[in-house]
């Protein structure tokens, strides 16, 4: 319950103070360049990785990217660049 209350307060504060959400709320920021690249900031780790599917852990839930010929161009503790032919980007909430 405490976690939910914390989130609610955060959301209210961000709205009132007009702050960027990704900074305040620890949200992922996902940038795509056509179907070529996905640039994921603020991830929490790699879950599964194959050339057709990549599953990345987020602060809440998971991100699933589907496509073909995936290569992780670079990977840092909070960012990763995925290259290949991207077809779908899905959020998975438990």
């Amino acid at each position: 319950m405490a976690k939910k209350w914390k989130q609610k307060i955060q959301r209210w504060l961000t709205k009132q103070l007009d702050l960027p959400e990704d900074v305040m709320m620890d949200f992922p920021r996902i940038t795509m360049v056509g179907q070529l690249h996905v640039y994921i900031e603020n991830h929490k780790g790699l879950l599964t990785f194959s050339d057709k599917e990549v599953r990345v852990l987020l602060s809440q839930g998971q991100l699933l990217v589907k496509g073909e010929g995936f290569v992780i161009k670079t990977i840092w503790p909070e960012e990763l660049i995925l290259e290949g032919k991207i077809e779908q980007v899905l959020y998975i909430n438990e």
């Binding site: 780790g45 790699l46 990785f49 194959s50 050339d51 995936f70 290569v71 992780i72 161009k73 670079t74 990977i75 840092w76 503790p77």
Partner: peptide, 15 residues
């Protein structure tokens, strides 16, 4: 995951 947590630089990851 463990490698990047240790701040090692890796690139061109392919399965």
């Amino acid at each position: 995951n463990e490698l990047i947590r240790q701040r090692l630089v890796i690139w061109n990851v392919k399965r």
